[in-house]
Design a protein around this nucleic acid. Sequence first.
DNA 1: AAAGTGACGCATT
DNA 2: TAATGCGCCACTT
Length: 108
Amino acid sequence: MSSVHNNIFSEIRQTVKQIPFGYVSTYGNVATALNLRDVRLVGWALHGNQDPSLPCHRVVKKDGHLASNYSLGGWQEQARRLQKEQVFFLKPNQVDLAKCFFDLTRVE
DNA sequence: AAAGTGACGCATT
DNA sequence: TAATGCGCCACTT
């Protein structure tokens, strides 16, 4: 990853930062909020992230399953962070979107 | 400079 | 129901 992003990547990060504590959003929802045609860009922007102010663990797949390739420690680490925020889980690797989904298209 | 690739998701076979 | 294809960005080689 490079230094400066006056591009979609910074937009993605801005959007992800709007997900409140205790809630999650999905890759697709972020993409829709930004009118992106390629959802993979969201994952790309978060891949290898080290910024603690960027809650990348709050982004999951559309059905609530955790990121299959979560960078730092795999989905188990992502699950640990979410449980710390008292997010509801249906299964060890799947959150309850019905209770914890935050729609980013509503706030933008 | 060009081609390959990816924390996904939807439509098509 | 499973498998495949595409998206068209940004980054890497």
